[in-house]
């Protein structure tokens, strides 16, 4: 099955790179990388793509009105209360960069979750944070059960002649009446499952960790790409290829900018290709 570490490293690398620099070409390359990773994951993925693009667009449009920066005035609007209706090309450029960062983060996260096998993600997490990982695994196992319990409680109330309430406030109040038996029934199941865990030997000492299967060739490529990407991100934070937008944007097409954007793009193509989900 699909190992979680390669897509995790690549996603972290893309998000770090996008946050580490303001150079639009590099951020754009990270965004394209996230898009590629997103398409390497199995469907469905329309919704997250839309969420990502709408969020990016919102920030792009918002920025000129909340920022009072930039030298190239495109539209000389008034300054009204807290808002500045003067639009500069720098403000637009910065809005674009900020929007692409958010879109990159949304797409990379959703791609990681669909590329990684949940059971193996759990196993990976249990190496790092065993108690948290076990808690989440257990609650994920119990969630469908408690959703059925929640439905059953609602039905129990209807079977006594009390139908669903209309109106928001009445509906919330009815929810409040049912939340107590829901939690009570949950706690009961919680004690039952704890008892079953003790009967199965939990709490006797350290648990053995399950062995991880050896990575495949593609997974090794993914790991390498992710590691290089992370190093690149750290280098950008440390001051490799500095770039400023305000008050006057640095030239877009610098050698270092082009080279780094090209590198990010290349890494993304290799990484997404290696992790492409095959049915």
């Amino acid at each position: 099955m699909r190992a979680p570490l390669p897509p995790l490293l690549i996603a972290i690398a893309l998000i770090t790179i996008a946050l580490a620099t303001s150079q639009p070409l590099i951020v754009g390359a990270a965004f394209v990388g996230a898009l590629l990773l997103h398409h390497a994951a199995p469907p469905p993925h329309r919704l997250m793509l839309r969420v990502a693009l709408v969020s990016a667009l919102f920030i792009l449009i918002l920025n000129p009105f909340v920022a009072v920066e930039g030298d190239h005035v495109l539209f000389a609007g008034p300054h009204f209360l807290l808002f500045d209706f003067e639009v500069t090309s720098e403000e637009l450029l910065y809005g674009l960069v900020a929007g692409l960062r958010l879109a990159t983060a949304i797409l990379a996260t959703s791609a990681f979750l669909r590329l990684a096998d949940p059971d193996r993600t759990q196993a990976l997490a249990s190496r790092l944070v065993p108690r948290s990982a076990l808690t989440v695994a257990l609650s994920a196992r119990l969630a469908p059960t408690l959703r059925r319990d929640a439905t059953g409680l609602g039905e129990a109330l209807r079977l006594r002649g009390s139908g669903p309430e209309r109106g928001r406030r009445a509906a919330i109040r009815q929810g409040a009446v049912l939340i107590e038996p829901l939690v009570a029934s949950s706690l009961e199941r919680g004690v039952d499952i704890s008892e079953a865990m003790v009967a199965r030997g939990y709490g006797g000492g350290t648990m053995t960790r399950l062995p991880e299967p050896a990575p495949t060739r593609d997974e090794r490529i993914g790991l390498a790409v992710g590691a290089i990407g992370c190093v690149l991100g750290i280098a950008l934070i440390a001051g490799l290829a500095p770039y400023v937008i305000y008050p006057l944007a640095d030239p877009l097409l610098s050698t270092s900018g082009l080279a780094l954007a090209g590198a990010v793009l290349l890494l993304s193509i290799v990484g997404a290709g290696a992790l492409r989900w095959r049915a």
Partner: peptide
Amino acid sequence: ELGLVAVLVAAATAG
């Protein structure tokens, strides 16, 4: 303790 926390997480999620 672990069971109680897990089940409350699940209950909050279901809610």
